[in-house]
């Protein structure tokens, strides 16, 4: 199949970017989206042009490196799927696709489709850990964890920090990410003692990074490749409010 791509090209963080049109010819339906871009890039390199920069690592949907907007949807149209696991069989010959980087003031563009997501690292550093040693693997079994709590913590821990939630949110809020990280630890007996100070620190850092407000509209939940639920934001709000007001 042949596709038309409109891709955001930006030389570096300081440069002014713009959309550039490319034709992707003879795309196999078996390719992943990133493989399709690899082929486009090979063509660009052969012509002596600068290839389209995009972030990727595992290409298995688990590392959280990849991600950009395809026709206004983070990671493209397949729910619960990162862009590396999105396959070209979901597209038809003649489709026109707009590829843009995550847009958030907190995530400045580094080049083309690559953005700086270090604000997420700083949110984790503000409280996304347990201060006391919780022992090694076998010690885990000495602390009883209710099955429900283990399941909820695991669901929240599935967050790969890709940034799609921020990209999808009209306010570029990082509530789903921060909520997932807070829920993941606050729900477990090892993390519960610090739950209020953790919520306060991580919410504070989230705000300091310049992310917007959560308006509970759920666009983040809709694009999350790990299908993290809005309930993690509810947990973040509760632990923050109880910690501050109680």
């Amino acid at each position: 199949m042949n596709l038309t791509l409109h891709v955001w090209r930006q030389k570096n963080a300081a440069a002014k970017g713009g959309m550039t049109r490319y034709e992707a010819k003879d795309v196999s339906p078996d390719m992943s989206f990133l493989e399709m871009l690899d082929v486009v890039n090979e063509g660009l390199i052969a012509k002596g042009e600068e290839p389209i920069a995009f972030e990727h690592d595992c290409r298995e949907g688990i590392c959280g490196s990849c991600g950009f907007m395809i026709n206004g949807v983070a990671h493209g149209p397949q729910r619960g799927t990162t862009v590396c696991q999105l396959h070209m069989r979901h597209y038809r010959d003649g489709d026109v696709l707009f590829l843009e980087p995550w847009r958030a003031t907190a995530f400045p563009v580094i080049k083309d489709l690559v953005v700086d997501r270090r604000p997420f690292d700083r949110i984790i550093a503000a409280g996304g850990y347990i201060s006391a040693s919780t022992g090694s693997a076998r010690d885990g079994n000495t602390i009883l964890v209710p099955k429900q709590a283990a399941d909820k913590a695991m669901d929240a821990a599935a967050c790969i920090g890709c940034g799609a939630c921020v990209a999808a949110c009209p306010n570029a809020a990082a509530a789903l990410f921060t909520g997932a990280k807070i829920t993941h630890l606050n729900i477990l007996p090892q993390g519960a003692p610090e739950r209020y100070s953790r919520a306060r620190s991580m919410v504070g850092q989230m705000n300091a990074e310049g992310f917007g407000q959560c308006t509970n509209i759920g666009l983040c939940e809709a694009v999350c490749p790990k299908e993290i639920k809005l309930e993690v934001i509810n947990k973040m709000n509760r632990d923050y409010l109880v910690g501050v007001l109680a």
Binding site: M19, F98, P170
Partner: peptide, 29 residues
């Protein structure tokens, strides 16, 4: 105050953006 914050948090807007996954009421608050 929050609306202004949200606007500054998304200072550069998308060429294309699909918000259909959110309810009409929530998008028009």
């Amino acid at each position: 105050q929050l609306a202004l914050l949200g606007k500054s948090a998304r200072a550069v807007s998308y060429v294309k953006k699909d918000n259909a996954a959110a309810s009409y009421a929530s998008r028009t608050m």
